[in-house]
Every structure is written in structure tokens, then in C-alpha cells.
Design a protein around this nucleic acid. Structure first.
Lengths: 342, 342
DNA sequence: ACCAACGATGTTAACGTTATTACGGTCGTG
DNA sequence: CACGACCGTAATAACGTTAACATCGTTGGT
């Protein structure tokens, strides 16, 4: 095998070898019916002998599409985002698209950088998990310029296409469940930044309100992060306060595992003295020392719908259809960490 | 703000607006000293008014470099690969490179597909975590054609650049530690496929041999996967056998967590009745019900060295330097799961 | 005051591909 | 037997950028 990779074999080289023109070679390799089968065979044989590989870059320049999409994630420590990334890459590959990938590290500046990078690389569309669920001013102009963008976080009023789990509804279901099994002091470990994602918090409050339970602001702590370490810290903070909850809603499973660990090291029995629900239903939730109840994140559903929607936008030509926000109703997976109080 | 994104603003448009030629505009925007400051200012102002963004595709075509590298991973369920992916993306972005990303799903065919995809997209180099540590026949031709490739798995004899953790040494250290704290029946949960990665197994055997402990093949189980679920299964298989180990070396922390869970559900106390060591030192290892000892995976070191090496290869022109394999000596992080036997 | 050198800009060609149009020759038809 | 249709192939121009070279006017040195 000779002449791979860097040794740029071009249509011209095949043309020279076979005696046909560059153009004929191009048509033949694209199975054009204008070229008779016999000629095609000759050209195809020559192409494979020379180990020809089409230059996607040149093709993109003339076709004005790169068959590449940009994927922007916040950070990848969240196993769910990770699984989503992989599923998206696979789904896109099946449709002939490559995936350019960038992380924003949860900062707006890097998110903007990533979007600019992708634009300059002429991606055909973007899938974005934004840093903030509210600050979308840097994304809206894209949509306005008819650039195909699908968010993986849903603000129904954002005016941008989105496919995501309905976190408000998930938090509502989880809180309902905790109430059903006998809890009324239900704490929450989740971001409380006013520009952040408040949906879980709102879902919890709605469930509390419906059950006639007063909302106590002392039962909410912002862990300022998404790791188990932050969950441990937040739990410590919460439990050092005057009012101790009997159940915890954690913004994700890493936080929940940190909280669970805190309970273990402080001899608080789970679920008897403390119930815990997480979000995302990562694999480790099931394998924790006390298997964790968790609001499931339907990776495959989100991926499929988001990619379908993006393909739809890409193929819609110059004028995009009205934005559509799809929120998927999540299932609550009940495990031992929220077993009913006796 | 008008005319973003899809509305292709070209150098020509700036030229028309300012009265200069396309070429002058190009030079000015690249801060060429051949263009006086005053002219540059005019052109830059016009560019920003038109919201010009350079077309990377066109640039690539003429410069013959895409400033993009391809990253091939097996699958992303392994949190360590995930952290590596993110760290690599960041390191490359700092150097002005974009990251094209693909997963092989642990199949050779998809790995080949990903590599072809990247080649046709003219990436300037690739970072590959191969499915098999031994089967590299599809990668070697790249190297032979002077294509910059760095593996994230090290076979010293592969003839391909690589940067990785020294897993043999890690397993040796872990096994040594288990012996030191009093174990002699040391089981292993790891792939035993002859074409797979046998380094952990070899490291363990070396340590056993040095300690004069006979190798017992019944103490090894192939979990056929890398998840906690497979770890639970493998542990069950191992403990159902005639000979039960008193300590376990697990191929990664997910497997270890599965094994730990098995011990809990079967009332086997860790570490008193069973010691467990994992690999990779993921965050959850520290937050497991019994904090897990683990062989650390130095994400930052691997990333930095691999990216540096790749940059070196890319800038080395037509003839690549001799391949170099760097194996990083891993630290063993000792936690409660291997506390000394009394 | 003249010529060389230089500073500022423009012209042309190239990168590898695809799309559009053009060109010969052969065949069928009247 | 002439004419148009059609088939197979080729020539040309484009995509947006950069690199090499060309051109013009001005300046400075002698």
C-alpha cells in the first residue's frame, strides 16, 4: 500500500492515469448516469489503485456545505452530557455528518468563542447546551440569520429550537414522590443563580404548594458546582443549619452521591433518616451504596429528536420554520434511597 | 445586527466597500506590515461593520492545513476518556486547533470508518484511543505515509507514537500494595482477550511472581465490558467459583464499583473480608460507600504530552521523526478499600 | 534632475472540487 | 443523404482564500 494520506491524490491524477478529463473522473466517481458503466469501471479501478480519497474541503467550498455540525457542551464531567455527546456523534455519522466538538467550561466567553470557531469553520448547524438557560443573546442572532441551531436546554420563550428533558416536571414528580412517602421537609441542592436554570427549583415549589407545604428558603443550598465533592459540601452546609430536611432533591446524581456520602460519614441512615433523589439516572446511581432514586434523562430520545430537528432546519433552505421547543416528560426511577417511611 | 452567519460576507465585499483590492483586504486583515496602519484601520472597520468572518474552508484549501485534528475514542462511558476528551479539546483550542470527534463503539470497523472520515476531511493529525492495543494494522500505514498520529495507548513495539499511562506498572504497584497489606489470593477483573490489553494482567503476574505467589488462573475473570453492571456480574462469577480471592484488582473504577456493590449485597465486608483496587481514580471512587483505592490516571499529563507530541509531528514537515512511546508511571491512591488486614 | 529603490496597491494564478456549457461524432429518421 | 437528436466527453468558470509577482508613483541620493 503506497501513497496514503499526505500524498494528495487528486482527480487530476486519476485523469492523467486513465486519459479521461478531470471532469469525467469526477462524474464517474459520483456514479453519474452520463458516464457509461465501462468507463466508470476503468476510473474506479484507477481510483482505488491510487488510493484516492475525495478532498472534503474542496467539495465543501463549492457545494457550500461542510456536512459537519458543531456540538457545544458545558463540561463533560456530567456523565449524561457525555452519553449525549456520544449518541449525537453516532446519530450524525449515520446521516453522513461529522461532529466538531467544543466545551465552554461553563463560561459564557468560551461558549461565544466556540460558536465563532464553528461559524468560521462553516458548520452546517449547531447543537448547543448553553452555559446559562437564560442568557441566549449571543445565540439569537444566529437563528435570526437563519442559521440552524438546536438547544439541548429548553426555554419555551427563547424563540430558538430546543429539545430537552422537562426538568420542572421531573422535579415536580420527584417532590411529589417524596411527599407521597411521607416527607414534608424537602431540601434541594441546586443552582439558585437568577440567570441559571431554576426549573428544578420551580418544580419542587409547585409540588410543595399543591400539597399545602410552606416553602422554607433555609432548605435550599446552592452547591456552586456539579460534582460529588460539591454535593458533600452542600449537604454539610444544609445540615449545619438550624432546620434539617428529611429528604433531599439533588440537581444531579453526582451531587446526590456526594450527599449520600455525607450521610454515611455522619451516621445519618438512608433512607430511614434521609431520603435522596438525584437527576439524570447515571449508572452509578444504581450501584451506589444505597441505590439512588433518580429522574431519568432519556439520552436516546433527546438525541434522536434533536438531531432530527436539526436535519429538518438544515434542509429547510433559506427560511427556517418557526422555532419549536420540545420538552420530554421524564420518568422517575424509584430505588431504595426513597423507600417509604415506616 | 444584520447579515450574520449564512449571509456569506467575503473579502470581495469588503474590497468593494472600501475600494481596495481583495488582496489588500486579505493582507490588511492578517496584519501584514506591508499595509500601512491607516489603511488597515479602514479595512478593519469595514470588516467589522459587515460582520466579516473568514472562511476557514477556503483558507484550508490553499494553505493545505485545516487546523483541525481528529480525536477517536472507543466509547465515552469511561469517565476518564471523557475527561481526556475535554482536556484535549481545550489544549488544542489553545493552540488554534479545532477538534473533530468520533467514537468507535469498541469495534474495529467503526474505528476504520472514523479514521477514513478524518482523512477525507483533511485533518492535520489524529489522536487515537484504539479499540485493541494490539491490532494497529490500519493505523500503521498512516504513520508510514508521514501522517501525524499519536496513540493514547502504548505498545512500545508498535512503531507509532504514543503517550499513555503505564498500566503494567500500575497493576504491579496495586498488586504489590495488596500483597504488602497481607493478601495472597488476588483476583483480577479485566479483559483477557489475547488481542486486547493484557498489561494489567501482566503487571499483576509480575508482582505475584516476585512475591513467590503461584499464579492461579481461576482467580481471573473477563467481565466482557467496562461498566459497573459487568463488574457486579464478574464478581458474582468469580465468587461462585471454588476458589475465592481475598482481594480484587479491577480493570477500572466502574468495574470496581460493581464489585463493591456485589460485596455489599452479599454481606462481604470491605476491606476486612475483601480488598478492592480500581483503575483511573474517577471522582466516584472517592465517594463510594467504601472509598476505593485506585491507580490514578493523570489526565492532564497525558493530554499535555500527547498534544505536544502531535504538534511536534505536525510541524516536522514531510518526514516524521522516529516514533516515541511515552509511558507515564502512575501513582496508586490508597483509600479505605485496601486498609491493612489486622 | 535623474535613476534606483521603495512603499502601496493591484493582478494573476493556484488549491481540488463541482456545475454549466460546449463540442464532436454517431445514429435514427424523413 | 441530410439534418437534428443524443451520447460521451471535454473545456471553462466558479467557490473564497492566499502567494507570487507586477505595477505605479514617490522619494532620496548623488
Amino acid at each position: 500500500m503506497v501513497g496514503l494520506a499526505r500524498s494528495i491524490v487528486r482527480l487530476k491524477d486519476i485523469a492523467d492515469k486513465t486519459g479521461f478529463s478531470t471532469n469525467t473522473v469526477s462524474l464517474a466517481l459520483r456514479q453519474s448516469s452520463r458516464i457509461p458503466q465501462q468507463t466508470r469501471d476503468i476510473i474506479e479501478r484507477a481510483a482505488s489503485e491510487l488510493n484516492y480519497l475525495p478532498n472534503h474541503i474542496a467539495k465543501s467550498l463549492v457545494s457550500r456545505e461542510t456536512k459537519t455540525i458543531g456540538l457545544v457542551l458545558t463540561d463533560i464531567n456530567n456523565p449524561t452530557l457525555t452519553r449525549t455527546a456520544q449518541a449525537i456523534e453516532i446519530a450524525l455519522a449515520e446521516r453522513g455528518y461529522g461532529t466538531l466538538f467544543a466545551t465552554s467550561n461553563n463560561t459564557l466567553a468560551e461558549e461565544v468563542r466556540a460558536i465563532e470557531l464553528f461559524r468560521s469553520r462553516q458548520v452546517d448547524g449547531m447543537l448547543i447546551y448553553p452555559t446559562s438557560h437564560r442568557v441566549l443573546e449571543h445565540i439569537r442572532p444566529l437563528r435570526r440569520a437563519n442559521y440552524p441551531v438546536v438547544l439541548l436546554v429548553g426555554d419555551p420563550d427563547a424563540g430558538i429550537d430546543a429539545v430537552c428533558m422537562d426538568e420542572r416536571r421531573g422535579a415536580y414528580k420527584a417532590t411529589r414522590h417524596l411527599i407521597d412517602v411521607g416527607h414534608c421537609k424537602i431540601g434541594i441542592l441546586d443552582s439558585s443563580h437568577p440567570l441559571g436554570n431554576l426549573e428544578k427549583s420551580q418544580g419542587r415549589q409547585q409540588a410543595l404548594k399543591e400539597a399545602g407545604i410552606d416553602h422554607d428558603p433555609d432548605l435550599a443550598v446552592d452547591p456552586r458546582g456539579h460534582t460529588a465533592e460539591r454535593g458533600y459540601w452542600a449537604m454539610d452546609t444544609l445540615m449545619s443549619g438550624a432546620k434539617r430536611p428529611s429528604a433531599i432533591l439533588a440537581g444531579n446524581d453526582s451531587l446526590a452521591i456526594g450527599a449520600l456520602r455525607w450521610c454515611q460519614t455522619h451516621n445519618v441512615r438512608v433512607p430511614d433518616e434521609m431520603a435522596i433523589v438525584g437527576f439524570d439516572n447515571i449508572e452509578f446511581a444504581e450501584y451506589a451504596s444505597v441505590p439512588l432514586s433518580s429522574v431519568n434523562y432519556a439520552v436516546d430520545v433527546v438525541t434522536r429528536m434533536a438531531v432530527d430537528r436539526l436535519m429538518r432546519l438544515i434542509s429547510s433552505g433559506d427560511v427556517l420554520p418557526e422555532p419549536r421547543v420540545t420538552q420530554i416528560d421524564p420518568d422517575l426511577v424509584i430505588r431504595e434511597s426513597t423507600r417509604a417511611k415506616r
